Simulated assay, not measured.
Amino acid sequence: MLATCLAQGTSGSPTVRVMSRDTQALLDTGSVVTLLRPVLAGGKAGEPMEVACVHGGTRTYDTCHVVIRTPHGVFTAQAGIVPNLPVPLLIGRDCPIFRPNKVWHVDGYDKLKPFGIAISGCIDGYSRRLMWLSSDSTNNNPAVIARYYLQCVSNCGVVPARLRTDCGTENGDMAAIQCSLREDHTDEFAGPLSHMYGTSTANQRIESWWSIFRKQRTQFWMDLFSDLRDRHYFNGTHEHKCLVWYVLLGIFQKELDEHRELWNNHTIRPVRQSLCPSGKPETMYHLPHRFGGRDCGFQVDPQVLQEFKDLLPPTNSLCGDDNLQYFANLERQSQLAPPINWPAAVDNYLTLKEMAGL
């Protein structure tokens, strides 16, 4: 079982009842299972449970069957008994109160940043549907991340009940917009509580997905760029990064779009001892009633979204218009055709690099 290794505080955590005791709980869609402190254990003993952290280590814990009463209903869970758990009760994805748009997990992926390409991603905690997977020259600009968020909310027509990010300054505009869009609602996570800060490593729903993403997609690009560097065709300078971005970003984003489509329509297999549904992320997100759930998103006025978009500053490339125009002029002079795949893009990169004297 995959579980969180550190809870990020209990601010805004709901009060629930475990058996006959009231306690604070932390909802964590990054954890497959529910965990609790020994003081709350009291139900029928269950089989020992192996809990694996996303960072590596695995430990075995005793378990017990407990009844947990929440503001959204009552459920039974086989919970792991963890002596040093930072919170009294950590509710994982085996709790059926997790639903589409309950929590969106946002994070940046920096493995390709040394080569000029930065990625931002967001995943729905319940369905595991990728909400966006986008690349640009930066993922540190708050306006860039806020535009990804606003475009996604506009496409979905709803704002999530909660948004979880790390403490990076690039998330500030998005967090403020999320809280503003939720300020007039009356649920327990309305307004400021609709956004959660935590460390990137503890945001395990998206963090664990990045490891899958690397194996299936980005390792190839890391090896490709490393090969260019080893052959002295790439030296890490600003100009080289800008040329990579200019030539390869379109092809790379196309691959991200294809990967997002494949992921959202692949079948997630059932996990033993977990009540979290299995199936295709796209289906679990759009048809939650088939899995005994409901959409937790809140409708949003398109006009309000447009007003926020208008308030954001322009998001210019880090490469600057002059550099991009220079590369475009060289491309026209050499009559290079726009690349349709990565080999063609690499050929264009090498040709333009030579023409520019980089």
Rank of each mutant, 00 (worst) to 15 (best):
G125D: 06
W132T: 09
D124S: 06
S127W: 06
K111F: 01
G116E: 05
G116M: 00
I123C: 07
N139L: 06
R128G: 04
I119D: 03
N140K: 12
S127V: 10
T138A: 00
S135R: 01
K111V: 13
F115D: 04
G121F: 00
S134L: 09
G125W: 01
W132I: 04
S137N: 07
C122V: 11
L130D: 02
K113F: 02
G125Q: 12
D110W: 10
N139I: 07
I117V: 15
L130H: 03
S135E: 03
Y126T: 06
K113P: 01
C122L: 11
K113M: 06
R129M: 13
D136A: 14
N141R: 10
S134E: 13
G125I: 11
P114E: 09
S134P: 04
W132P: 05
R129A: 13
G125N: 10
N139V: 08
K111H: 04
S120N: 12
I119M: 06
S137R: 08
N139H: 15
L133M: 13
G121L: 15
I123Y: 06
A118N: 07
N141T: 12
G116L: 07
L112K: 02
T138E: 00
G121S: 14
P114F: 00
A118I: 04
S137G: 15
L130N: 01
N139W: 03
I119R: 07
T138Y: 00
Y126E: 07
G125K: 02
M131R: 09
L112H: 12
D124V: 09
K113N: 07
N141P: 05
G116N: 10
G125F: 08
D136G: 13
S120D: 10
G116R: 04
L112V: 01
W132F: 15
L133C: 10
S135I: 03
D110C: 08
I119V: 14
F115Y: 15
R129T: 05
S120H: 03
N141E: 09
Y126C: 10
G125Y: 10
D110E: 15
W132E: 08
N139C: 08
D124F: 08
I123D: 02
D124K: 05
D136R: 13
L130V: 13
D110Y: 14
D124C: 08
N140A: 10
D124P: 08
P114R: 08
D110H: 15
S134N: 14
T138P: 00
K111D: 04
G125E: 02
N140P: 02
Y126W: 11
A118F: 02
A118S: 15
I119H: 05
M131S: 08
K111L: 11
I123G: 01
T138H: 01
S137V: 03
K111E: 03
N141F: 02
L130I: 15
S137H: 07
P114S: 13
G121M: 14
A118K: 01
I119E: 01
S134C: 11
